[in-house]
Write a protein that binds this DNA or RNA. Structure first.
Lengths: 222, 222
DNA sequence: ATTTTGCGATACATCAGTGTATCGGATACA
DNA sequence: TGTATCCGATACACTGATGTATCGCAAAAT
């Protein structure tokens, strides 16, 4: 008889308790990694921040890196889900059915705010990218995720652009790529300026330049 | 009598020998930091790479961070000098006096290649930025340098743009900021794609999109 | 050539972090 | 209420990195 499934319950590999401490450890890692960097963070710091000792850590993760990847996966998943809800969530905030070119910039901004919403995520993501730049293994999964995300985002925004009678003057996916870059670097600039407070939402630089950029990259349809 | 200056020679704080080993240590740090990251790099790795023991290191730098800053300062200085020579150096490569809109994109590309010329610098600079995002002290000097650099670059490129009868449709400094972003993220993308080899010059993505972006952000003068 | 000085090598003390093996208590189940 | 099990706490052995104090050699000065 197969020993791994006696009842359906037995197959439950993760107890509720276990899942909870895993989540608390990930939360703690999120904070500590953002504050000190992945390498500078010790297993002890993370465990302590979560209210555990290292015993709990090693019972749940083999290495600090494994925890780092678990964190990245969780946060990426959350943001991808938010993106897929997409326009349905944002349109009501911007102004219902009547989408004008003016409100288009606003809509794009909202899309970006949805994903890169706080200071810590910006920092942790930068660190993940840096890790990817040094490690081909990590790079592969990083670019796969980013590419997939960018495609989804392009699909949604391109539709919105079309619905106000505009189209991009260069490849839509490249245009969106450029816009995302602008937004991300504006986030980073806000952090560098010491714009403290957890949610660095709506960095002023992006608010100003982003609609102008959208305008510059689009033209009326034929 | 003042003890610090008996002759002019006595004031020579840095011997030639000392300067040379400092430079070798900085070179080594450049490599090791790029490969493993600042935190993961040990003083021993760096010293060994330079062909010394830790004794030499501690005789020249108090901490690893001090060396890191010395590296950043040296490399920034080099790139700023290159920038100031600027058009004089680049114009001959592009096509002498006859600057057309077509060759304008090429010229801008050359400007950017001048500064962010290799893979290692891209990585080390990313790490410096990350450090700045976590430390207000570092952030101050980082943004001061970047701002200064961007202003110089804008001055030169804006002049070139004007000389072919164009002008930016948004604030020139913001336009250049966006262009620099595109270029830098293209560099990073090239690294992530595993585009190995030391000089990742002319990342293909930038070659393609950059002229288009310049075109999109400019218009004929009145 | 001899002395002096500067600078890198060597050796040592210390510490912080890691991973593992074991223990004990809370929780689920009878 | 008793029992089994899971999971986090504790203790320990070990490694790698740090910083300092001292030594010895090579290059400069006289």
């Amino acid at each position: 008889m197969p020993p791994e499934i006696e009842t359906a319950e037995t197959a439950q590999v993760e107890s509720a308790r276990r899942r909870k401490t895993r989540d608390r450890l990930i939360d703690a890692a999120y904070e500590v990694f953002a504050e000190t960097g992945v390498h500078a963070a010790s297993v002890e710091m993370i465990s302590e921040r979560a209210g555990f000792t290292r015993g709990a850590f090693y019972s749940n993760f083999a290495t600090k890196e494994e925890l780092f990847f678990a964190l990245a996966e969780r946060e990426n998943r959350i943001r991808f889900e938010r993106l897929q809800e997409g326009v349905d969530v944002i349109l009501p905030q911007v102004g219902e059915a009547a989408l004008t070119e003016r409100s288009l910039g606003e809509l794009v901004t909202r899309f970006l705010e949805l994903q890169s919403d706080d200071r810590r995520w910006c920092i942790v993501q930068s660190e993940f990218k840096l890790l990817a730049m040094r490690n081909a293994q990590v790079a592969a999964s990083y670019v796969a995720y980013q590419r997939n995300f960018l495609e989804q985002l392009t699909e949604q925004i391109d539709a919105a652009v079309g619905s106000v009678g505009l189209r991009f003057t260069i490849e839509p996916i490249e245009a969106i790529g450029i816009i995302v870059n602008l937004y991300e670097s504006a986030m980073q600039a806000a952090i560098l300026e010491g714009d403290d407070g957890d949610s660095v939402s709506a960095p002023p630089l992006a608010r100003a330049a982003l609609p102008a950029l959208v305008h510059a990259l689009t033209e009326p349809i034929s």
